[in-house]
Each structure stands twice: as structure tokens, then as C-alpha cells.
Design a protein around this nucleic acid. Structure first.
Length: 899
RNA sequence: GGACGCGUAGCUCAGCGGGAGAGCAUUCGCUUCACACGCGAAGGGUCGCAGGUUCAAUCCCUGCCGCGUCCACCA
């Protein structure tokens, strides 16, 4: 006999171990395959609620397809997470108090240290995934920096280089002064901050003056003669790198100044005034300073007018310690320099105005510091070229997004894609396979030996080569994940069987970072889109809709929730709330509710045990005779169809809700209740059938629930005497014939009748112990027969003393039961006034329906244009309502006559 | 500035052309022999606002209001 409650903590580890050791997580050798690659969590990570959602959904699908007999592969692994991991280890070094930093250690020692850290602490998240129940094939676990994946990275890099799609270029990049590395556009976050426009007057060179339109004291238009031009800036310190001033070619105010020069304050540099459409006459003074080396727009303007690119910053965003930075600012931090220059401008009188403003400033997503546009040599991927096929694959449906709206986001970004800067000035990552000769010539090769060979051919003799110091963007190796993890570039069996993968489940926040790039690389290197379907899962927020974050203190730790409610309850909650296209507001009571659901299933099983509902080997539910059996078999079939269809379509919430309703509201609330009189009765044939049937239904429930709640179902499966493992049990075959319309109608009639009886008892405050007789007048033959067949059930569930066909007796309460009128004889509990009110309300309700439906049917347009079945349905409704009203009205008349 | 999404019962959400639904919360009643993490019953909604299409609109279209997210940009 089962305990009263399920104790998840006691069984979860044991069951997981059993599954893992049995080898069921590895795909079978079935021909039909189903594969998913995990979005590799950062090796530094620990399981957060977003992971819990994402991996629950992957596991639900994997378990579902595995049970459907496919060779199901869920391939797990972790990402080396360049900056994040390097940060963790650097922080650890700093905290160690040895005062030995990364640079003191040197590259080799530091990287060794990171590997050491990875070995000790890097496995956290994969253990946590096990607690969630994730049925990943751990024997295939990969790491983005392991040998195979590193080889794939080199191969891709070299191939792209040969194809001219990977190149080195000097352009402005987003520079993170804290990590002292370039980062990609995607790693930049625009944040609104309070700032200022400082208006500076740059004096014109060569004694040039012009008339500038102004208002006089009375507000009239006039002009003043100026020997300077005003520019506005949010970044005064960059003026040291100015190499021009731009005005709009059509701006009348400055037309005469085009081609003239200004003398840049402080440096005294003579720089030209150029005409460029970039200058917006409506903004600021209409004239803009141009700093090509420190602003993306200015860089373009500078190129158009051949302006000098003057870099004034070092890699930490301090002003350079040498020319062209004037002596007094050398080595100064950029923000300190800003204040110093403002102070000087004020002092020297060329600060004309200070305007407060809010503006967007780029920040590094990891470091949080202000990003500096910085002129450096970096490696770039020609993403525009690779994007073409990736766009086409989604356009023609080789890959579909679910929900489909996300395709728009994908297209939007792909169609405006910029070259992808893939080099990073870090140490933890895939070192760029490029070697430099002394004269700067570059040899790109998969191995150092190859590079030397190339160099020897090039120079006609061996030369010294130096490998590129940089590593690749973490997302570069992630982009290869679906095929590199399967052994590419070798043509492995896994690659043949499981690539392309079937479904990718991930968050919308990495559509650009990851999904788009996997599409590009997958198509380019394998010729196939890496997945047939991309399911974008929701974002988990707190119960108030706030994004969870440590700083807000509103994070819900999935491991704590698992401890409290069990992994199944958390999984069911996340699945049930995974409606498409909506964020999830996660609240504890909801998880608690689904924990209660698992307890309900547990106790239903307990009940079947107490009633000796043992499985009968070879029992065929289609041979069951009782209406109740035939009905529940149909309900199982409906649930099977609903769950199967929902899971195929990634409609996870529909699947969960269908299961919940079936198990609780159908199986427990009605089937088991209706079965009780039979189980307690003395009809041994019926009892035997119901016992076998109940065991069968329970099995079906456990099978269907297993993908979402694997632990409790596996445990109950074992406790109910199965010797196989549920995880590898087969999914039932749908069979539409299992739905028995006649049984359906009969049981629904029964449910309605009992519902009415209960409702009236409750309304009339009839104590539970009171047994009353029930009679049905106007009953059809069918109804009379049903009444007879189910007498025991009606007596038991309605708490009645007698059920029969007959006329109303004095002191009875009537209600409508199909074509018949039921009379519940509870004279001693009837409050005449209340009863009159009840009947009046019932009549009013019918009237409302009658009015509404009649209005429709009286409308000739409706009768002419509405579909036949809608008209028929309304006619039926009208008839029912009129019959119902007649019954209650008669009862009301009788009541009035009697009183 | 561009794009996407959301406003339905107190809360969280489902429904998305023909009778307003669920869970939680609330109220009432239950030592009913699986389960109080339970059982039974009840109350509660002008389906954001305004137009339009339609025989029919919570559902489709347009506009507005409110909330959220992403992208781009603002010297």
C-alpha cells in the first residue's frame, strides 16, 4: 500500500540514476530519429528559472518522441563563455590576495588556471539539469573548447578565410575598456543616461567672419558678425581628436564657410569645414565637430572628406601618453579629461552654452562600462553573404519559427546585418589560427605546421611566425554547435542520423546571438539548415511581471522550488504556463497547485490499490461492456489525441491542461466516484471488469503524463507492479473508434443529473446525512432505462433513499433533467419563499435565452444567411429553453396553489 | 523613429466569428470508508475605449488610450 503522500526528494535521485544507468537516454537504433541540441549553458552558470523552463520543454519533447518509438537524442553540453569565465577566474585571482593578476601570470599559466577551475566547478549546471529530470544523452556531452569542437572551429575559420568570407580589417569597433577587448554590436547595450550638450565656439582661421542670424532684444530677426562657429557635443574630450567641422550643404547660415578652416582650441590644429548631409541643420547649432577615430558617424563623414583619423585614447580609454594629446592631458582618464576640458573652455571663453539632456550611451553588456568606438585591426566575418541562404531557408520553410512572429524579428536583423567582428582580445577561448610573418604577411591555417609550410612556399625559405594573440568570440563556436557536436568535419554516424536536428528550443534573447548564426554556419558548411523548427520559449518573470534579477531580489531558484514541491510540480507548472507568445508570470501558489495535482494522482493510485484494481495481463479495453467502461475508454482516447496533437505542435500548455482535466476532473471526480458502487457491490462480473478497466486507465494516465511529470509517474508505474520502465514504454496508438457516443451521452446525462441533485441539496441546506427520494416525471423510455441501470450510482452520489419514475410528490423540489422533470422530495428543508425565488430565477434565466435566440430566429437575414447547423442549433436551444421554462412555471404554479 | 506583443472574473491566464471559461483567492456546507495538498456548492465579467465589416463580433478591420519588449538613432 502506498504512503499517503508522494515524497519527491526520496525518489527523484534514485529514479534518475536508474534511467541514466540503464542507457535509455541514448537513442535507440530506430530508423526514425528525433534530435535536439541543448542551448549550451555557460560553464560558469548555475540553473536559473529560464534554464528550468527551456530544459523542461526540451525534455518533454524528447521523452514524448522517445516513447513514440523514435531514436531520440537530446545532446547536452556547455559553453566555455569567453568573457564570463575569464571574469570569474580573474575575480577569484583578485580575491585570493596574492596580488597576482592575469597579466602577471602570463597567458599559459592563466589559461591553465581556467581549465583547473572548469574541472572543479564547471560541472555544476549539468548536475542541476539532472535534478530537473533532463533525459540528455550524457555519453555525448560536449564542451565548446574540447578537441573535436576546437578542430571544427579551426576548419571553419580557415575555410571562410579561403572563401574570402573571413578577413582582417581596420575599422571602428565597440571597445570595452574594462576587458580591453573588442565586442560585437550585439554585446552593446544602449542605456539612457543624464548628460549635457556642451556648445563650443571654434574660432575661424585666416580672419574669416560671417553674418549669423540671431534675434535682437525685441525678438526681431537680425544678424551678428561672428569669427567663430559653434558646435555642440556630449563628449568634449574627443575634441582633441577632431579633424573637421561639418555643416549641411544647404544650410544658408554656413554656406560661405564651406572650404574654410577653424583653429581647434587647445591643440591649435587647423581643420577644415566641410559640407556633409550628415550635419542636421535642426540639431544644435547645425554645425557638428567630426572625430573620425571616436565616433561611428564621424568615421563615415571622415572617409567621405578624407579627414584625418586621430586616435587619442589607449586600450583603457585613457588619453594617450604622447602626441597628439597635449602634455597636460596625457594619461588622464576620459571622464577626468572631459571635466578638465570643459573647465578650460569656460575659462578661455569658448564654452557658449551648457544644455541638459538625456541621451543613449553604449555600455558593455558584461562589464557595464561605457563602450568606446575604437580604431583597431580585427577579424570580421562577411555576415551579409552568409545571411542570404539563412534568410532563404526561413522564407521557404526549411526552418520554421514557432510562434511564427519571431520570423519577422529574424528577417529584420538578417536583412540589415553588419560584418561580424569575431576577434576578442582575451585569453580564454579558441585562439585565432592565423600566423604573422615579420613583414605582417598573414598565414591562416588549421595547424602551426601548415602555416609554416605556407610561409616557406611564400618566402622560399623557413621564417619565424607569430600566432595571432586573440581568441574568437564565444558565439563563433556556438554557431557550429548543431554539427560540431555530432563530429563534423568527420562524416560520423551521428551526423548522418541526427543532423539536421528536429527542434531547437531557446529564448528570444539569443535569436541574433545564436540562432541566426547557427543558421548561417549550418547552411554554409553542411548545406542543410541545422533545425526544422525553432520554438521560442517565453521569458519567466516574477508574479508581478518584473524581470527576475539578483539586484531586485525577486529571483526564484528552481532548485529551491524542486526541494519544496518536487521536480514534477515545477515542470508541470512551467509546461502549463508555456502558452505561445506570452511571458510567464511565475507565482508560488501555482506550483503548489500542481504539486497538489501530483498528490491527487498519487492518491487515486492508492485508491485503486485499496480496491484491488490490479492490471489484467492481456486485458483489451475494447471488450469492456459497462457504459462506464466504454465512456472512460473514450475519454482516454480524447486525452491521448489532445496531448499528442498539442505536443506535436509545441502547444505545451494545451497538453498540460488536457492531462490535468482528464486526471482530476474526469478520472478522479467522476470515473472513480462512479466506479465506487460497483467496486463495493456484489456484481462480480461488473466488479472484475471495472477493476481491470481502472488499472488500464491509470496506466494510460501515467503514460500520457510521463513526459511532463516523469518522476511520480515512473514511481507509480513501479509501485503498480510493472517490471518495465515507464520512460521506455510505448506511447499509445490513437484509435478514434474508442469513442462511444452512446456511452458518452449516457454518462453525461448521469453527471448532469447528479450535479443538479447536489446543487439543490446545497442550496436548500440539506444535510449530507439526509437521504431523500427522487422521482422523474415525463421520462422517456431511454431515461427510465438509464435510471434503472444506474440506480446504485445515483443513489450513492446523490445521497438518495430511492430513485424511480413517477409523478411529483407533495413537498418536492423540481428541476429540469433533459426531457423529464426531476422531483427531489425534501419537504422538511423547503423554505417556500426561497423555493419560489429559485424557480423564478430559473424561469428568468430561460426567458433570457428564449429572448436572445428568438430575436435571432425572427431575423430573416439570419435565417437566410447563417449556416444550417447554426440555425438548427438555435432552434434546439429555443425548444429546450421553452420546455424548461414550462416545467418550472408549472412547478411554480403548483407551489403557489399549495400555499 | 521602426517592429512585435499584451489589455477577458480580485489575481494569473485560456478562448479568438454563432450559448463568457480554468486555476488560485472569496463565501457556504462537509470527520462521504483515495486524497483537508481533500470533497460538494455558490458568488463574481459593459471581454481597454470608439468606429467599421458581418445575419452575427470578446474574436476580423481601422483609430485611440494604457502597459511591455526588441531594434535603430538623437553632434
Amino acid at each position: 500500500m502506498l504512503e499517503k503522500n508522494f515524497d519527491p526528494a526520496a525518489v527523484e535521485p534514485r529514479l534518475y540514476k536508474m534511467w541514466e544507468e540503464s542507457g535509455v537516454f541514448s537513442p535507440s537504433d530506430a530508423k526514425d530519429t528525433f534530435s535536439i541540441v541543448i542551448p549550451p549553458p555557460n560553464v560558469t552558470g548555475s540553473l536559473h528559472i529560464g534554464h528550468a523552463l527551456n530544459n523542461t520543454l526540451q525534455d518533454v519533447l524528447t521523452r514524448f518522441e522517445r516513447m513514440r518509438g523514435k531514436a531520440a537524442l537530446w545532446l547536452p553540453g556547455t559553453d566555455h563563455a569567453g568573457i564570463a569565465t575569464q571574469m570569474v577566474v580573474e575575480r577569484q585571482l583578485a580575491a585570493s590576495g596574492t596580488n597576482v593578476g592575469r597579466r602577471d601570470m602570463g597567458r599559459e599559466a592563466f589559461v591553465a588556471k581556467v581549465w583547473e577551475w572548469k574541472k572543479e566547478s564547471g560541472g555544476t549546471i549539468v548536475q542541476q539539469l539532472r535534478r530537473l529530470g533532463a533525459s540528455c544523452d550524457w555519453s555525448r556531452e560536449r564542451f565548446t573548447l574540447d578537441d573535436g569542437l576546437s578542430a571544427a572551429v579551426r576548419k571553419v575559420f580557415v575555410t571562410l578565410h579561403q572563401q574570402g568570407l573571413m578577413y582582417r580589417d581596420k575599422r571602428l569597433v565597440n571597445w570595452d575598456p574594462q576587458f580591453q577587448t573588442a565586442i560585437s554590436d550585439l554585446e552593446v547595450e544602449q542605456k539612457e543616461v543624464d548628460g549635457h550638450y556642451w556648445h563650443f565656439a571654434y574660432p575661424l582661421a585666416d580672419g574669416v567672419t560671417y553674418d549669423f542670424p540671431v534675434k535682437d532684444e525685441d525678438g526681431n530677426d537680425t544678424t551678428e558678425t561672428r569669427d567663430y562657429i559653434v558646435v555642440a557635443t556630449t563628449r568634449p574630450e574627443t575634441m582633441l581628436g577632431d579633424s573637421g567641422v561639418a555643416v549641411h550643404p544647404d544650410d544658408e547660415r554656413y554656406k560661405g564657410l564651406i572650404g574654410k578652416f577653424v583653429i581647434l582650441p587647445i591643440t591649435g590644429r587647423r581643420i577644415p569645414i566641410v559640407a556633409d548631409e550628415y550635419a542636421d541643420p535642426s540639431k544644435g547649432s547645425g554645425a557638428v565637430k567630426i572625430t573620425p577615430a571616436h565616433d561611428f558617424n564621424d568615421f563615415q563623414v571622415g572617409k567621405r572628406h578624407d579627414l584625418e583619423q586621430i586616435n587619442i585614447l589607449d586600450t583603457q580609454a585613457q588619453l594617450l601618453a604622447f602626441d597628439p594629446v597635449p602634455a597636460e592631458y596625457r594619461g588622464m582618464d576620459r571622464f577626468v579629461a572631459r571635466q578638465a576640458i570643459i573647465a578650460r573652455a569656460e575659462e578661455e571663453g569658448w564654452l557658449k552654452q551648457v544644455e541638459k539632456t538625456k541621451h543613449m550611451v553604449p555600455h558593455g553588456d558584461r562589464s557595464g562600462v561605457v563602450i568606446e568606438p575604437f580604431l583597431t585591426d580585427q577579424w570580421y566575418v562577411n555576415a551579409g553573404e552568409l545571411a542570404k541562404e539563412a534568410i532563404a531557408a526561413v522564407e521557404d520553410g526549411r526552418t520554421v519559427f514557432e510562434p511564427k512572429n519571431w520570423e519577422k524579428t529574424y528577417f529584420e536583423w538578417m536583412r540589415n546585418i553588419e560584418p561580424w567582428c569575431v576577434s576578442r582580445q582575451l585569453w580564454w577561448g579558441h585562439r585565432i589560427p592565423a600566423w604573422y610573418a615579420e613583414d605582417g604577411f598573414i598565414f591562416v591555417a588549421e595547424t602551426e605546421a601548415d602555416a609554416h609550410k605556407q610561409a616557406e612556399i611564400h618566402y622560399g625559405k623557413p621564417v619565424a611566425l607569430k600566432q595571432d594573440e586573440d581568441v574568437l568570440d564565444t558565439w563563433f563556436s556556438s554557431a557550429l554547435w548543431p554539427f560540431s557536436t555530432m563530429g563534423w568535419p568527420e562524416n560520423t554516424e551521428d551526423l548522418q542520423r541526427f543532423y539536421p536536428t528536429h527542434t531547437l528550443i531557446t529564448g528570444f534573447d539569443i535569436i541574433f546571438f545564436w540562432v541566426a548564426r547557427m543558421m548561417m554556419m549550418g547552411l554554409h558548411f553542411t548545406g542543410k539548415a541545422p533545425f526544422k523548427r525553432v520554438f521560442i520559449n517565453a521569458l519567466v518573470r516574477d508574479d508581478k511581471g518584473q524581470k527576475m534579477s539578483k539586484s531586485k531580489g525577486n529571483v526564484m531558484d528552481p532548485l529551491v522550488l524542486i526541494d519544496e514541491f518536487g521536480a514534477d510540480a515545477l515542470r508541470f507548472t512551467l509546461t502549463a504556463m508555456s502558452g505561445q507568445g506570452r511571458d510567464i508570470k511565475l507565482a508560488k501558489p501555482r506550483i503548489e497547485g500542481y504539486r497538489n495535482f501530483s498528490t491527487k494522482l498519487w492518491n487515486a493510485t492508492r485508491f485503486t490499490q485499496m480496491n484491488e484494481c490490479a492490471r489484467v495481463e492481456g486485458f483489451d479495453p475494447s471488450t469492456a461492456k459497462l457504459t462506464l467502461s466504454r465512456w472512460i475508454r473514450g475519454e482516454v482516447q480524447k486525452t491521448l489525441a489532445a496531448v499528442t496533437e498539442a505536443l506535436e505542435a509545441c502547444a505545451f500548455d494545451d497538453a498540460a491542461n488536457a492531462l490535468y482535466k482528464f486526471i482530476w476532473n474526469v478520472f478522479c471526480d467522476w470515473y472513480l466516484e462512479l466506479a465506487k458502487p460497483i467496486l463495493n457491490g456484489d456484481d462480480t462480473t461488473a466488479k472484475a471488469e471495472i477493476r481491470a478497466m481502472t488499472a488500464w486507465v491509470l496506466d494510460q494516465a501515467m503514460i500520457l503524463l510521463h513526459p511532463v511529470m516523469p518522476f511520480i509517474t515512473e514511481e507509480l508505474w513501479e509501485k503498480t507492479g510493472h517490471i518495465d520502465m515507464l520512460i521506455s514504454h510505448s506511447w499509445p496508438k490513437p484509435d478514434a473508434k474508442a469513442i462511444d457516443a452512446e456511452a458518452d451521452e449516457e454518462i453525461n446525462w448521469l453527471i448532469d443529473l447528479i450535479g443538479e441533485i447536489r446543487s439543490i441539496r446545497s442550496e436548500m441546506n440539506v444535510p449530507g446525512s439526509a437521504r431523500a427520494p427522487l422521482s422523474l416525471s415525463g421520462a422517456s423510455e431511454v431515461t427510465a432505462k438509464r435510471l434503472n441501470t444506474h440506480e446504485d450510482l445515483i443513489l450513492f452520489l446523490g445521497r438518495l433513499s430511492e430513485v424511480k419514475v413517477g409523478e411529483a410528490v407533495a413537498g418536492s423540489v423540481p428541476f429540469v433533467a433533459g426531457e423529464a422533470t426531476a422531483h427531489l422530495a425534501i419537504a422538511e428543508f423547503i423554505d417556500l419563499k426561497a423555493e419560489q425565488a429559485r424557480l423564478a430565477k430559473g424561469i428568468a434565466d430561460f426567458d433570457k435565452t428564449i429572448d436572445g435566440v428568438r430575436r435571432k430566429l425572427d431575423n430573416p437575414e439570419f435565417v437566410r444567411k447563417a449556416p444550417e447547423e447554426v440555425i438548427a442549433e438555435n432552434r434546439e436551444r429555443l425548444e429546450d429553453a421553452e420546455n424548461g421554462k414550462a416545467k418550472l412555471s408549472a412547478a411554480l404554479e403548483r407551489l403557489k396553489a399549495a400555499s
